[in-house]
């Protein structure tokens, strides 16, 4: 079979001769990314070890290779760091729990409505996500239609609020990143031939066993892609925390934002950014390795 693989490999390029064409195609895009993505990240790395200039002017820093910035930044913001990862994990798990049955229903139970339903999953996200987040704030807020009835039924205490809480932040994040979870899940579920599921049933697997042994493993690439696409933006998010949270639900994104704009403390903001990025990349690498889906990237 090595022969077939070799043939398939070569089938893509007719002549197999080394050509300059791919490099010409890559050049503009990669140059752009190098200047406006790689360079800023390197610059950020440099900024992260600076210390305030002697002049004392606000926003003016010099390079002193002060690596203690990292230690200080982490110690100051470890709560927010922890919160970022806890909230992002919770939101990812919730989104998975909500999306999986939804994607499953669309892939296997929707018949000719399939394409329409896929559009409907994405449709809400054409309304600005800030507008939707604020809509949740008002729906769940003091004047909204939810809190009153819940209080009347004594399901929540008279002092309890639904907004300005960790609960609101996590549900907001869950809601906002839902299509990033649903679409890859749907894509991988839709690729499963329903006959393999029937075959499993034929081989004496009951519904749950079929799901556990056949459906879920086959949808794993979608699960991995979906959880990554949800977790990454969730961990770096600060908008949900700013709109739906309170001071004790601040995430690391909020800290970076305020260090940058309010306190003009670039080195700390840079050090925090770097730690966030590194933490996420390490988690992704471990996750992808463990789930055995390296080919996704």
């Amino acid at each position: 079979m090595a022969f077939l693989q070799a043939a398939a490999k070569r089938a893509n390029s007719f002549t197999g001769k080394p050509s300059r064409l791919p490099y010409l195609l890559l050049l503009p895009g990669l140059a752009f990314l190098s200047i406006f993505f790689i360079l800023p990240i390197l610059n950020l790395a440099a900024t992260s070890t600076q210390s305030p200039a002697a002049s004392g002017e606000i926003g003016s820093y010099v390079q002193t290779f002060q690596f203690s910035n990292y230690v200080n930044a982490f110690l100051e913001s470890r709560e927010q760091f922890a919160r970022s990862f806890i909230y992002a994990t919770l939101a990812t798990l919730l989104a998975l729990a909500i999306s999986y049955p939804l994607a499953y229903a669309i892939a296997f139970k929707s018949g000719r409505w399939k394409n329409l339903l896929v559009v409907l999953v994405v449709a809400p996200f054409f309304t600005s996500f800030l507008l939707r987040t604020i809509a949740w704030k008002q729906i769940l807020g003091e004047n909204g239609p939810v809190v009153g009835p819940l209080r009347a039924l004594h399901l929540i205490g008279p002092q309890t609020t639904l907004t300005a809480s960790a609960f609101a932040v996590v549900t907001g994040m869950t809601y906002n990143f839902l299509p990033f979870m649903t679409l890859p899940l749907y894509a991988s579920l839709d690729r499963i031939d329903p006959r393999t599921l029937e075959a499993a049933g034929d081989l004496y697997a009951n519904g749950f066993t079929t799901f556990r042994k056949v459906t879920f493993p086959l949808s794993l690439p979608g699960v991995v892609a979906g959880t990554l696409l949800t977790f990454i933006p969730a961990a770096g998010d600060y908008v949900n925390a700013a709109i739906l949270g309170n001071p004790s639900t601040k995430m690391v994104g909020n800290v970076i934002d305020s260090r940058f704009f309010r306190i003009v403390d670039y080195p700390t903001a840079a050090a925090l950014s770097f730690m966030l990025m590194a933490a996420i990349l390490i988690l992704i690498t471990v996750y992808i390795r463990r789930s055995g889906t390296e080919e996704l990237i």
Binding site: L30, L33, S34, F37, L39, T47, G236, Y266, L276, M277
Partner: peptide, 27 residues
């Protein structure tokens, strides 16, 4: 290497992308 360079911006949180670019512009 190209694939990695394409993947990285998607794996980088938006705060980091925004902050790093602004820091460079200011520099």
């Amino acid at each position: 290497a190209t694939n990695t360079l394409i993947f990285l911006p998607m794996a980088t949180p938006e705060v980091v992308l925004g902050a790093s670019l602004l820091a460079m512009f200011l520099n």
